[in-house]
Amino acid sequence: MRLRLPHLAATALATLITCNSAWADEVQVAVAANFTAPIQALAKDFEKDTGHTLVAAFGATGQFYAQIKNGAPFEVFLAADDSTPAKLESEGDTVKGSRFTYAIGTLALWSAKPGYVDDQGAVLKKNDFQHLSIANPKAAPYGLAATQVLDKLKLTDATKGKIVEGQNITQAFQFVSTGNAELGFVALSQIYKDGKIDNGSAWIVPSNLHDPIKQDAVILNKGKDNPAAKALVEYLKGPKAAALIKSYGYEI
């Protein structure tokens, strides 16, 4: 037995090395919470087409910024805005020239109750709700867009005591879907499927009421030698991905 040990170790090592080369084709992606549903659909397609594996983590863009600055192992970052990837780029945390806009987000005022939100958003002005849910405007671009809409409609003061904040757009959605907030600003992608509102009632907020939610993607330094990271970015730029992204209510 003792004689065989080195042999065993060598086999184990060889196995590890082969496994490792297969694992090199896995890409770790930080995904803004609003893009959760699309990336899950995209991942299946991407894995089938390229043979690479996509591992996604979901959160608020500001949260990811802090994590990336502190050495998080992400290789590609799909943000909910364009300023955070640009900031990372200027600070030297990304692969130069890899930044591009993969989607333009649409904001929606949504209620889980059918017929509660009209298609003009007049329900906001009527102001007979208790809680209006938004994502944390300091960390989530959709939350910032929501505050811009309220500003533009001159409803900031009127809604002040009624706003509840989710830490990201998923939590903002959750407050509404559990009925704890009657309505809230969410990403259209969260309530949109195959070209229509999935459930409840919603007002698709006109894009002139807030700054465009340009969502940029970027390859981070940790992904610069990973072929899967590059493949993912190429895939996102392709026509197949574009069609799928649009079907969730984004512009491109």
Binding site: A60, A66, N136, A139, I163, V164, E165, Q167, A181
Partner: peptide, 21 residues
Amino acid sequence: GNIPDKTRVVSVQIFDHVESM
């Protein structure tokens, strides 16, 4: 729901500061 003076306690406030850098 992170409401100032109602539900935003110290631990959440710290989280908020970190999130907003």
